[in-house]
Design a protein around this nucleic acid. Structure first.
Lengths: 170, 170
DNA sequence: GTCAGTCTGTTACCTTATAACGCATGAAGC
DNA sequence: GCTTCATGCGTTATAAGGTAACAGACTGAC
């Protein structure tokens, strides 16, 4: 109803994102196009908001920001966009924080395709400053895959999160 | 949610738990005593309920069962007990399911102390049958600890959860 | 243009978790 | 004995996270 034309206007809200974010968005856009997926304005905006906050951000915090430019935004608005972005590996969910964070490798300029690093990411969560660092360690992935196989288990998506103290806080 | 025939074994409400559970409760009790902690009747009951369900169980499902014998039970009742049990390593939280599961190694008869295996447990979650299997693989733990250290990170509690397909479902 | 599939708006609701306050119990000290 | 402090728990209220279901709008294929 009140949803006129605003979102076709295309700027993400009132303005655009910082350059570094726009670049990642463009990379994501390209990756989507290459797979026949659609990074719609809404999805692009949500991804932008996630990337803009380089730390994990909750769905409702995201929603609040979204509301600044989309008056009608509601929880499903955010969650549906997040669902898409998670499937595509553009964002990850940090389970311990119930929060979402952008995947830097999936939104890197030359990223490509399907060898699912998206499924094998590790997070280091600093208990002091709250910052989260993304890790992509192959030895962890393979150790885990082996252990799972040994248990007769065909591994799929892996959630690996380590709470501790980061270099700066240590 | 399946109403298994097997968990009808004992009314678990007011009375006691099955023998295997009582044995684990006694072990937990002993472990608490050895550390100056108190496994109060409430905590013991909550732990019993978690152990009785050998699969992950949500806090509110736990609450429902608790209410059968404690009319006044409310969310904090359960969450406070769980907090204690988590700290002591008697139960783990499966983050992806928002559910809790008993730690078999911490409640084993001859369990001892503090070398925190409690912090280094892995879960295999079957996407088909929903069953969860606990794993305690040292190579995973050390790979992860090494990767974290290399990133300048002092690792503490680790959450490792693998979604996939179990032997029976595969 | 019309049809099917996808995406989004909208309302309503459910589940999970915590804050805050106060009473009860029990050990520690005088 | 009585105070004091700490811990555990009851109780109320509310925050935070997440989904179901239906309707309208858009897009691409024919």
């Amino acid at each position: 109803m009140k949803r006129g034309v605003t979102d076709r206007a295309m700027p993400s809200g009132q303005g655009r994102f910082p350059k570094r974010v726009e670049a990642m968005l463009d990379a994501a856009d390209a990756a989507c196009a290459a797979h026949g997926a659609r990074l719609t304005p809404l999805r692009r905006q949500v991804l932008g908001l996630v990337l803009e906050s380089d730390q994990p951000i909750g769905a409702y915090a995201l929603l609040d920001r979204l509301k600044e430019s989309r008056t009608g935004a509601a929880p499903p608005t955010v969650y549906r966009a997040l669902e898409f972005l998670l499937e595509r590996g553009f964002v990850h969910k940090v389970e311990r924080l119930n929060a979402f964070i952008g995947c830097h490798s999936a939104t890197a300029p030359h990223d490509h395709d399907d060898h699912d690093h998206a499924h094998t990411v590790q997070f280091l969560i600093c208990g002091k400053c709250g910052r989260v660092q993304e890790l992509e360690d192959e030895s962890v992935r393979s150790a885990l895959a082996n252990a799972a196989s040994r248990a007769g288990f065909a591994p799929g998506r892996m959630t690996v999160e380590v709470e501790g103290v980061c270099r700066d806080c240590g």
